[in-house]
Write a protein that binds this DNA or RNA. Structure first.
Length: 257
DNA sequence: GACCAGGTATTGC
DNA sequence: GCAATACATGGT
């Protein structure tokens, strides 16, 4: 991975806390750490164990990409469009909460909403930046607080998720170790978490690479390019295939008209 | 001002 | 089971 290809990973819809500065560098917060990524400093940052894991550096994405590309020409083309996409190791709670907020919302607004929640309820980490709010912090709020922050009808969903996680009723560590179906079912006990949000939490927050979030774009894509195929057809890296296809489709909306 | 945005819960058949 | 509908909010 190099600085030129960073955008493919940070701007493909899997994360909401990164932004590009006017000078072209990226800044973001993950795991309570702020970082600015510029051409010169990138390799140094990636030597830090935390960021190496965050960017999933130990995984052979070239090999996975080749394997997926062999499955189907359309998938190969999507992979060629953004070959450097990697699935980040985001925190389980942050991914779960962020994708609860994503429903019926657009990516720009999700970023703004997440930023507001972090500023209001996240732990300050210096430099005017804040960590993602802990489940305990959000569980202590009232629904109207979350509505005031702009969550809209998702406010009770966020609250229910925060309360279940903060109380230990839902143990995200435990969820991670379950078979995919059980993990999904566990997450779907939260009000406002259906199959799509559960799969996003699993893929982006718990690195379950076989999870395949099926949003409107992926429904269109599957109908158009893979009729009759199910997510499991893509195999153990279905989630990575999903990310290639999602990003490709969003950048080629004319394919669906 | 309608229309849309990485859905889900509820309702009615 | 499955289609229709409500749900907040801000940007085109």
């Amino acid at each position: 991975m190099n600085f030129e290809t960073l955008a493919q990973t940070l701007d493909c819809g899997q994360c909401f806390r990164w932004s590009r500065l006017p000078d072209g560098s990226w800044e973001g917060v993950a795991g309570g750490r702020y970082v600015r990524l510029a051409g010169e400093s990138l390799s140094r940052t990636l030597r830090d164990p935390f960021w190496a894991r965050y960017f999933d550096l130990d995984r052979d994405y070239a090999g996975i990409r080749a394997q997926l590309s062999g499955l189907d020409p359309a998938l190969a083309e999507a992979a060629r469009f953004a070959p450097e996409i990697r699935i980040l190791n985001q925190e389980p709670w942050e991914a779960l909460c962020s994708f609860i907020l994503s429903q019926c919302n657009n990516i720009g607004r999700i970023r703004g909403l997440v930023a507001r929640l972090c500023r209001l309820y996240g732990e300050p980490i210096g430099g005017g930046h804040s960590a993602f709010p802990a489940p305990q912090a959000l569980a202590a709020l009232r629904e109207e607080d979350l509505r005031a922050a702009g969550c809209g009808f998702r406010a009770p969903y966020v609250l229910d998720a925060a309360q279940k996680v903060a109380s230990g009723e839902l143990d995200l560590e435990k969820i991670q170790s379950l078979p995919l179906g059980s993990a999904r079912a566990g997450l779907m006990c939260i009000r406002g978490v259906g199959p799509k949000v559960a799969d996003c939490a699993l893929l982006y927050g718990m690195h379950r690479l076989e999870a395949f979030p099926m949003d409107v774009w992926m429904k269109r894509t599957m109908r158009r390019m893979f009729p009759g195929k199910k997510p499991s057809w893509f195999g153990p890296y279905a989630g990575i295939a999903q990310q290639y296809l999602f990003h490709y489709s969003r950048n080629h909306p004319e394919l669906f008209r």
